[in-house]
Simulated assay, not measured.
Amino acid sequence: MPTPQQLKDAFKRKYKKEVTLEPEQRVPVFMDVFDEFVKDCGMQNNWRDATYEKFATIKKYLQGFDSELTLDALDETRLNDYVNYLHDTKNLRNSTTGKQIDFLKWFLRWSKRKGYPTNPAFDTFKPKLKTTRKKVIFLTMEELNRLREYPIPARKKYLERVRDVFLFCCFTGLRYSDVFNLKRSDVKAGHIEVTTLKTADSLLIELNNHSKAILDKYKDIPFERDKTLPVIRNQRMNTYLKELGELCGIDEPVGETYYKGGERIDVVTPKYALLGSHVGRRTFICNALSLGIPAQVVMKWTGHSDYTAMKPYIDIADDIKAGAMDKFNRL
């Protein structure tokens, strides 16, 4: 609850009148506290660059919403105003808005623990955001083989290395960040040993003929920092994968439904336009499960710690197997 003096000062600031506060009267500057939170949590949790960039975006949204925001001003009404700002002004999907609110609540919990005058409304704030489960994009066995066997034209040879790296993810389940950091010393006889960048899991992943062939192709080619494969920056790789997918005719229409505020939006996109490096990992999981490899074995390779994260993939594998059984009916 703001003191009468704080209310008076806020009123004066709003109407551009100068006010000089005594040190004990000063209200903590929201963005200064936010910067402290990022520095503190970043060091404690060993944030990667991508996480710092994520919170830089959050800060930018908050500044755009109210450049004079204070911690004690975020009551339920103001929090709802922020939700509306995210989907009306920033044009975010409900699923993204929900994540933004979760990150904001993380910051507010931290500020409360640190003793800053934080409005307690965030503790019970749960905006009603209609969402749908995000569709898992992966390549079927037929699409994977089509991409693997496609003869890349001479004028598009730059796509060859991109394809090899992507296929390595499809046949090992590695994330982009881990294949980017894969060193020759991580490659052992018949397997690779990786400590994942995202979760710090220590994984031992056996090599199959496909992943081994890709490693053999580049074993005598030196790369910087003793890397194993010619991995380019993720953004460029994702652009090239879309180009490669289009060339290969991976153009199955993919329907998606999402919400912005109360508006339902249905879109249909060719699959190649949805390709990115992480599709490789999803392709590995879905196809491994559909081949009948037990989920607990796949989890050992991917580093998943519980079945909750695996359930969407298991559901897809069950659908694939049901469709495969139907083929007997055509005999």
Rank of each mutant, 00 (worst) to 15 (best):
E53H: 10
F328A: 12
A324G: 03
N91E: 12
K114H: 08
K54V: 09
I293N: 01
K311G: 08
V297G: 06
A317G: 01
K54L: 15
R281H: 05
I58E: 12
N329Y: 15
A154C: 02
G190R: 07
T228G: 12
R155P: 00
D326T: 11
L79M: 00
I214Q: 06
T195F: 10
A189E: 13
V194H: 07
N209G: 13
G280M: 01
G64T: 05
N91F: 14
D72G: 02
V38F: 01
I58G: 04
S202N: 15
T196P: 05
P253W: 02
Y158N: 12
E193I: 15
P23H: 08
P153N: 11
K327A: 15
D164R: 04
Y259L: 02
F107I: 07
K14W: 14
K54G: 05
L291Q: 15
E246T: 06
L289K: 08
Q296R: 13
D226C: 02
R146W: 07
Q25D: 15
G42E: 02
T283K: 02
K135L: 11
Q6W: 10
L229D: 09
C286D: 04
L274T: 07
R330W: 11
Y61H: 15
M310S: 02
N209P: 02
D123N: 06
R225A: 14
E142K: 10
K112I: 05
L139G: 04
R163K: 13
S211C: 09
S185R: 14
R155M: 13
M299D: 06
P23M: 05
E246Y: 13
S95D: 10
F103N: 10
P153I: 08
Y240P: 04
Y61C: 09
G42F: 01
T199W: 04
T96D: 06
K134I: 13
K112H: 11
K212E: 14
T96M: 01
P4I: 02
R133E: 15
K198M: 04
